[in-house]
Write a protein that binds this DNA or RNA. Structure first.
Lengths: 301, 301
DNA sequence: CGTCCGCCATACAGAACCGTATAGCGGGTG
DNA sequence: CACCCGCTATACGGTTCTGTATGGCGGACG
């Protein structure tokens, strides 16, 4: 009933409970104590005139209202974090923290040397890597720079195309020596150990026609982690899809059916317009864009 | 130096000082006291390791760093306000507050009857009107619904074109009776009292060629407020630009040089995608869109 | 079926915070 | 030039909030 605007602190505790699922967990994550977080949630419920959680001994379950408010609380947290990054980068020169988001494979296999060189050049620069296939939202400031496989359509975003990463079927040569090299999709599907995804993602639904006969039930090893798939290919488990440029680095890996299966992924490096004049972001953007371009051109050699 | 994350409350005080220009002013605006706000700012400076304001007896001037952080603090405030609106709208039916932004003329001359009808139909709905020619940022949640004269290019925004508002030159008939009706731009510029803008805005720069010879030095009355220009036309001051639909409502107003000067403005009603399923926003969106469409079609009759 | 672990709720002491009151300074005004 | 107004900075008392400690409950495990 009392609708005095709730303190912004309460939102932080609210988000913590939402993410951790319990007062105790949120308290640990936030560096507070369980009674304090409980009081915060209670105060927020009071101020909003809403019930946010259904209490129980094994945690708090969010109500529908709490779920409706969740995205806003997340935006608050992301914005506060972005503010801190900007604050940290104040002062002369390239300094502070830049947060980069990319897919797991790019982040693990491609970015490290690029970032290492970047750091050599700018020792005061700190880097945060968010590796997820979910596209973190640059508009929500969840990251400063994103490596994406889709062309960004937001005009407040600044993007540079760095080329197309090619995906292809690969296997280790000793696997092929044991089981033969398939010369057609028919041979591939007949008796070969195929490595593929488990659950369908939005990306996969979009690429379904490009995948051809590579459907879920044809897979001998199913993993949602692209890294796990790559590791399985490298371990000689069987035949799977990975970036051509990565396979080239491992002399034991051989490409299979290169003409029948090739999936080029347009790749973009993206940044919020507002950060264009921020030294740390500009420098990191250039480094990542040029590094990826080098990787892709090397891949295509 | 101590980089424990600052409390989110501090950002609110920081933004208050930034907007009010003094500790005392911010304290009044926030419902706190001057020493408290002072302590908040001090604590924030401590936590960020930055100097945010240069103190003086006649207020606090923001440093460069403070200005860099300002947009983020504003996003925080806008998001918190949006969260409150969503919280208020929880529960069954169309309830809560919807924030609409539009130009001053639209907001004063066109929207009121539309909103009145909307309120009759949904008594539990409250409406916030933000009237500014500056485009409030829907991405930053500064408003739920926006009436704009530019096609939105963000694909997270949901937009509906409601037609084109036509701008034309108008004057009161008794003014024309006294001074004659110009039959060409030449006659218009020669001795007539022309009402126009004072400082150039982004919109005017874009429309410069459409405005033809209507430049700043030709104006007898300069006002940046479109409402003031409209009032001047209605008062019989002279000849100025206003919406054709508005002029039709006043029998004493006559259009001048209709063939030589006509500026159609594409008009869009826009909303964030996320709010599409929110009853209060959906209802208000429909009402505003249909109301404006009715206005524009009536104007063109 | 008893034990253990993690969770929420409550009571109480201490710390942190806020508001009130006051002093000091600078600019505008008659 | 004296007065007034608004601002910041500082000291002090009271309130609020936080943390610690404890009790009670439910599920997991042997």
């Amino acid at each position: 009933m009392a609708d005095a605007e709730p303190g912004w602190e309460l939102y932080r505790s609210f988000l913590g409970v939402l993410k951790e699922g319990s007062l105790s967990g949120a308290a640990r994550a936030l560096g507070l104590t369980q009674p304090t977080v409980g009081r915060h949630v209670e105060a927020l419920e009071q101020a909003l005139g809403l019930s946010l959680f259904t209490r129980s001994q094994l945690g708090l379950a969010p109500t529908e209202a709490a779920l409706a408010l969740a995205p806003y609380a997340e935006t608050l947290a992301a914005t506060a974090a972005a503010l801190l990054r900007v604050a940290e980068s104040q002062g002369d020169g390239v300094r502070g923290t830049v947060r980069i988001t990319a897919s797991e494979v790019i982040g693990v296999e491609v970015l490290p040397p690029i970032l290492a060189a970047l750091r050599e050049q700018h020792p005061a620069l700190k880097i945060e890597l968010g590796l997820t296939n979910r596209v973190e939202d640059l508009l929500k400031r969840e990251a400063d720079i994103a490596v994406r496989m889709v062309r960004p359509s937001q005009d407040v975003l600044w993007a540079r195309r760095v080329g197309a990463v090619e995906l292809g079927l690969h296997a280790r040569e000793d696997y092929l020596a044991r089981h033969g090299t398939p010369r057609s999709f028919g041979e591939l599907l007949n008796g070969h150990a195929i490595i593929g995804f488990d659950r369908e993602t939005a990306f996969l639904r979009g690429a379904r026609k490009a995948l051809g006969p590579l459907r879920r039930d044809a897979f001998s090893l199913r993993a949602d982690s692209d890294l796990a798939q790559l590791a399985a290919i490298r371990a000689g488990y069987g035949i799977g899809v990975c970036q051509v440029g990565l396979a080239r680095r491992d002399a034991r890996l051989v490409r299979v059916l290169p003409k029948a299966f090739s999936l080029p992924l347009e790749t973009w490096v993206t940044m919020h317009m507002d950060l264009r004049d921020n030294p740390r972001c500009r420098v990191a953007f250039e480094a990542v864009a040029e590094g990826l371009q080098g990787y892709i051109e090397g891949e295509a050699r």
